[in-house]
Amino acid sequence: MSIILDKVNYIYSPGTAYQVQALNDINLEIRDGQFIGVIGHTGSGKSTLIQHLNGLVKATSGNIYFNGEDIYAEDFDLKGLRTRVGLVFQYPEHQLFETTIFDDVCFGPKNQGLSKEKAGLRAFEALRSVGLSEEVYYHSPFELSGGQKRRVAIAGVLAMKPEVLILDEPTAGLDPAGRDEILRLLRELHRERGITVILVSHSMEDVADYVERIIVMNQGSVMLDDIPREVFLHYRELEAVGLAAPQVTYLMHELRERGLAVDTRATTLAEAKDTILKAFV
């Protein structure tokens, strides 16, 4: 099971003066059960890319295969794809609309054609998994704090039981505690349920600690695609396109220059601590 992108191109407003090549010959394979970070600065094409993965935006040219099926084929169930590849947009709390939290989370499952009871069960399960306490389920979503609202919105997508979960900047605007909560929640979902998680971010620090693969987007193309430590070895190239490697990467290189025998491939705090301590033994 996987999503395969084959020479995908996307052009905004083709044939006009405003024509922009948003995606340029993208080839990717997203295998089942991976935890992937997509990084790039504003306008790098990362948001356009993820909207292709669930069929919201149709490629100008190229093919996308979901579990081996061509999603642009006549008989492919595109609406079904949108629920199998769940997409959580930036500031998802802005899409809440029902009078109660519970009803809002039921919206997705109901659109899938589930009965009221089944949708309700899904909603319960999803709300529990994002760690929201039961006493608020029948309150208005507008009474919640920013971080809580965001978790309700994520539950709204989870309730559709997607096989792949994509989140566009899920921590934007949250305080540090809220940020950690969301990232931990994603790690849990990935570990315990085995869903593929794709995290879009412009923060290297957020991503480095959690994901197993990083796709770096620049000007509509895939610039790097590898495990984090390999990606961050290219920190000079990342800088050149307005991205930075995690602080730890820089620290390791600077310590190396000062003659400390540290492993420059360390990217997380824990790895940094280990290798520095080793250097002092």
Binding site: L56, R82, V88, F89, Q95, N111, M160
Partner: peptide, 13 residues
């Protein structure tokens, strides 16, 4: 446009 897409991602038609 954004809200429309977000709701479509939740299966809205």
């Amino acid at each position: 446009d954004k809200i429309m897409k977000a709701q479509m991602a939740r299966g809205a038609d």
